[in-house]
Design a protein around this nucleic acid. Sequence first.
DNA 1: GATAGTTGTAATATATCATATTACAACTAA
DNA 2: TTAGTTGTAATATGATATATTACAACTATC
Lengths: 160, 160
Amino acid sequence: MQIGSKFTIGVHIITAIACFRDMDRVNSEFLAGSIGVNPVIVRTVISQLREAGIVQTQRGSSGAELTKRLDEITLYDIYKAVGSVDAEEGLFHFHEQPNPDCPVGRNIHKVLDQRLMDAQRAMEEKLRSTTLADIVEDTRQALDNESNEETALLQAESRM
Amino acid sequence: MQIGSKFTIGVHIITAIACFRDMDRVNSEFLAGSIGVNPVIVRTVISQLREAGIVQTQRGSSGAELTKRLDEITLYDIYKAVGSVDAEEGLFHFHEQPNPDCPVGRNIHKVLDQRLMDAQRAMEEKLRSTTLADIVEDTRQALDNESNEETALLQAESRM
DNA sequence: GATAGTTGTAATATATCATATTACAACTAA
DNA sequence: TTAGTTGTAATATGATATATTACAACTATC
């Protein structure tokens, strides 16, 4: 099992909006092309990000705007916004009908639940510790490295 | 999405084996009754626990035995044994075709992967910190509380 | 050694869920 | 007015979790 890709899609969307906002307002079709999924998926995720108060959009008008500073948006916010894990159910699916007539069956839930929640929370805390400012920063860094490598390559070629 | 119930079923199985081992060897049918699932599911999970070196079984002969001490079996061992999360894929499903022609698309994976792994690992470390000795101990504790409550109830009744 | 009970596993069915896709109304910008 | 865009419902498709049936291999016991 895996946490659905809407989470990484959400991160991709916000990163792209942040990276391209000075050049262009990116629409759902462009984003879909960058992400490699259907535009309706992008619009769905953007809707969820809007409901979570992370972006703002206008029907008919192209592109979305961020409503928070990048360093105020954490990975956890996006994970939560797109409903990566059902709040009621939790990360771990417990078998649903342990037998109340068995001493183990009627107690296993009680005994395990807290520890499973702790594990889930540890994961979520980690997600809280990264902001989209970190992600965008690292993306820019990666782009810089790309162009440095390209320059180095060109220089190497010209030396031959 | 959720981590499948085979994980909690695995914990239930080992707890039951530990709790009942002095009284009875529990077979897959009994366990299925306690857990509330089909006996074949139980046998499948036991097979995976056996492959992980946690239990020992014998074809035709009833019941499974633990091959490790309870304090040497962690929740993580069971989580791993039943393949709760695919080792290749990881906990987070990344969208599969980010566009290499887009500056964000070709870098998002690199930028996110480490942080997602860190989050997954934080969850897994928490699972490592609980042993089956803890679980069995807590289960016995819960059973004690049950009988204390029962006694209290009986005493209350006799006073009326 | 014959019988009843058990495990191991393959094969299949079913239900649920993630993702893709089509379609279209509501809206904006030019 | 026209072309482009968003928001969302409806539906399709494929993957996966769990249930179930079936049976061969094996053990324990009478």
